[in-house]
Each structure stands twice: as structure tokens, then as C-alpha cells.
Amino acid sequence: MPQPDPQAAAGTPHDVKTAVLVSSGRHPVSGRAGRAREDARAVEMGLSLVGADLSLVHAGDPEQASLRESLEGYLGMYHGLDGGRPGDERDGQLSLLPLRAGEDAVPLLAAWLERSGVRLALTGQRAECGEGSGMVGYLLAERLGWAIATGVAAIERCDAESVTVLQALPQGQRRRLEIRLPCLIAVDAVAEAPRQSAFGPARRGRIETVDDLLPADESRLDTGSAGWQWQPARARPKRLKVVKSTNARDRFKAAAAKSSASGGQVLTDLSPEEAAEKLIDYLRAEKILAQDDQ
């Protein structure tokens, strides 16, 4: 993918205060806590945009045992920045907004974003634990009146007014979007892979608890999900090929038919030219190559 160097393209991206909303990830095999895959890519995108000026924020239960483990994963990405001069690097910093179970994260995050003057917020598309609805970004954008774009694969340039991004489309295709600041960007899984989380920076990174964002008496309980039942995910049933027919014989034949492929076509005794022609014809028939070629 074209991964332009945003620092070079943009004038002074450091003017745009940038933050990444990170969540606690779950490994797909072991279920162990760690960096969420899309959030880690968002952090990578933010680090390559503004370096160690990037701030991180997480709203979660500080009592949860595995929380520090996953948040340190993000802080461990603060290396190789600031022109790569060793010894010159700054440690990562993360604001932890304490949230008890059953509370809504959106008002907290919105208040934090407003207070800290963030104009560009990055995040993954969906959290890996909890509801994972992917709604937080949209609710924040709606609440703050920000623009939002999803499926972003790369940031091309960023200035004081807007940010130009590439949006991922299926099969490696890209679309260029210009988004007015302030905005929220949901990073796609095809964005540049996150840098390794290193132990040293992770150990040194600071996690700062911010708990005076909202009036203490305000109830932030999230009642919307009160009637929901949570259950372990069931395997989705495979859809069966059901053949509709008025005729029993046809239905039987369809059900009994072997699902073998029609079989590959094997062409032997070809000269290279003939083979080339067959290949081109096939590719054109399958619309891989366009027809109008001479």
C-alpha cells in the first residue's frame, strides 16, 4: 500500500493534537488480554504522524487485573520516535478514565477529548471485548459534532484544517478522503502493522488516572443493555444448499449430486503462443484483463 511519510508531506502535523482511544484486546485463540489488533494499528498510525506527542486514553475498570497488561502493550510502542535518536525518546503516557462495570464510556471520553483539546482522534473499528458494537466512535462524533471516517488504511497528510486519508476497500483497493478537523478516524485492519511492543518502554510508560472529568453525582449507568442476555458465542450453522423444486426427482438428484468441481481443464501439447492465447482468453473471460486490448 502507499504508505507516504506523513511527516514529510504535512506541514506541521504536531500542531494538531492527536490521541488514540485504545481498548483492551483479546487474543483470538487464547482469549488472553493484550493489545487490540485494530487499536494497535491506530497507535502505529498516530505514532508515525506525531511521534511521542501522541496521547492515549482508555476508559475502563482500573480494578481489572489484566488491564495494565493490555495498556502496557500500547505504551511499549513508544520507541524509534523523535528522529530515532536513542536516549532522546520520551515515554508514552496514557490517561485512564476510571469506569465501573455497567457505566457508559461515551460521556467520559467526550469530556476528556474536549478538555484535552484533541482535534484528531484515532481508534480501531470495533472493540475485542464487551459488546464490540463499534458504536463508541459514532456516538462520540455525534455528541461532539465531529466528522468521522471508518476503514482508514493510512493517513496521507494532515494540516490544521483537514486530514487526508486512504480508506480501505475490498481486495486491496483504496479511496482517498479528505476529512475536516476535528474528526474521529476508525482504523482498518489492513493499515500498517503495528510496531513491536517493547518491554522497556512499556515498563517506563506512565498511566495517569483522570477521575475528575464529570460531576461525581451524575449517574452514568448504562441502562440500555439492561435486558440483554450474554451467552458464550455459538458456532454459526453452515448454510445448507437447499434446492427448491416442485419435482421430487429433481430435488433428489440435486441432493445426491456429488459436489465435485466440474474438474479442471487440462490442455496439453500447446506451443507457448497457443498457451499464451488460452491464458489471455481465460483472463479476459473472467474479467481479470479488460477486453479492449488491441
Binding site: G76, M77, G80, P86, Q196, A198, F199
Partner: peptide, 8 residues
Amino acid sequence: ITLERGET
């Protein structure tokens, strides 16, 4: 390199 730089 691995623990501080994260460049494995």
C-alpha cells in the same frame, strides 16, 4: 534491540 528498541 528487542526489549528497548522493539526491533526484533
